[in-house]
Structure formats: C-alpha cells, structure tokens
Amino acid sequence: MSNIMDSLYNMRLLDDLARQDTVIHKLHPLVKLLATVSYLTVVVSFGRYDIGGILPLVIYPVMVFTLAELPVKPIVLRILLVSPFIIGIGILNPFFDKQIFVLGDREISRGWVTFLSILLKSGLTVTAALLLIATTGMDRLGSALRMLKIPRIFVLQLLLTYRYISVLMEEVARTLRAYSLRAPKQKGVHRSAWGSLAGQLLLRTFDRAQRIYEAMCLRGFAGEYNTGGFGKLRIGDWVYLAVWFLFFITVRFYNIPMLIGSLITGVIR
C-alpha cells in the first residue's frame, strides 16, 4: 500500500521538475514539442541495422538533461520501467535472424544487432518523451497541442486521464489501507475479495470523478481545459528549434560516426 502512495508521489515528480526555471524550461512549449516530435521521427526512421547512424542522436537528451538541470536517476528509473516490454519485443530477434554480420574480425548474428537497435531506439524515444514532460509539464503540453490545432476532445482526454490516474490511485490506496487493517495476517488481497474490491473501486472512482467534474463545471468549465496563455515565440525559441532541426537533418543524411572514422583513419594513413 505504501508503494502505491510512493508511486503517487513519484508520478508527480515530473510535474515538480517541470516547474524549474532553467533555459530549457523557459522555452515555448510548442518549440519543445516540435523538437521532440522531429527527434522521435528521425530516431525511428533509421533502418534496423543502422546503429552507428543513431549514435549522434544521444547528444539531444544529454544536452537537455544538462541544460534543464534534471536529476538523471529518477528519469533513468522510469526508462527502466518500460525496458521489460522492449526486451520482450526484441529478445526473439537473435533466434530468428541468424545471418552473420562481420564486425572487425568477429562474427555476430544480425539478430543481436537488431535487438540492440530496438533497445537503443526505444531508450532514446522514451527518454525524449520523459524529458519533454519534465521540462514542460502536462498542462502546458496540452496547450501546445491545442496550438497545433489538435482537436480539443483528444487533448482533454489526455490531460484528464493523466489527472485521474492520481484520483484512482488515491482511492486504491484508501481501499487497500482499510482492507489491510482488517486482514492483518494476509499478504496482499485474498482472491475471494478481488471481485468486490475491484467493483467497489470502480464505483467509488466513478463517484469521485463525477464530483470532480461537477466542481469543474461550477467553476465555468465548458469543455476547454485552459491552462493560461503563452507569449509569442521569441528569437531564442526559433534558434533552439532551428539548431535542432539542422542537427537532426544532418544526422539523418550523413553518417557522422563513419565520417569521423574515415577522417581519423585518413589522417593516420
């Protein structure tokens, strides 16, 4: 049960981080959103054997981490949370794709290369998404999506789902606390109580959601989740976006590690 409350506090950590006042945090949310979307597009556009080409893209999260002064550990922990799914997706590749790939004087299966590529790509994309939330916050992100003319119903769904997760978790924590106090010798919830507990939880969450919705309506909510306006894009925002666009395009069309490698080997020769 304490784990659930811990998770609740941890979940809000990204929101807390988003309230800092660094160079990255001060950027216009729209700019950060566009930079992240283009980054994700470039990362996933690489072929499955092209690990070398992706490597320079590591610079983007490293730069954002540094400039936004974000703590590395909690964000890496969140990336690790999704790693079992990614490993689950990629682990069969080494068994199915057994073609041989020669690296220097070693031979390795191509399956391992694709597995590594999946790990790298997912690691980078999840990091970029987390960094976007940790430097912008969900509410401002919602406003940026609205600026891109994403229909308000989708943005509202996203924001309210994010909000209601904590409502649901609070209800779960309360219910489990009440249960555990009356079942001191049990570890977890006995299966005979699963059905009624889940049912009760669902009904209570409906009730709570209804009250929250009523409270929103009473304060003039009419379908649009207003999170305050933003100023216009400043020169700094444009420069940030332009620099990253240029970098992503360069990385996509030129294999930079290869160029550096041939440059060095050329010099040595």
């Binding site: 929101d15 988003a18 309230r19 916050g137 969900m138 509410d139 909000r163 409502v167 709570r208 009250r211 929250i212 009523e214 409270a215 929103m216 304060r219 003039g220 909510f221 009419a222 649009e224 207003n226 999170t227 305050g228």
Partner: peptide, 18 residues
Amino acid sequence: DQLFMNTVYDDVAFGPRN
C-alpha cells in the same frame, strides 16, 4: 474534489481562465 490541477496557483486560476 475541487483541487486537481498541478499547483495551487493553477487551481485558483482555473475558474477565471474558463
């Protein structure tokens, strides 16, 4: 039931912004 935004400020601003 009433407070659900990220910060107290945003919560108090919710009505006027609407």
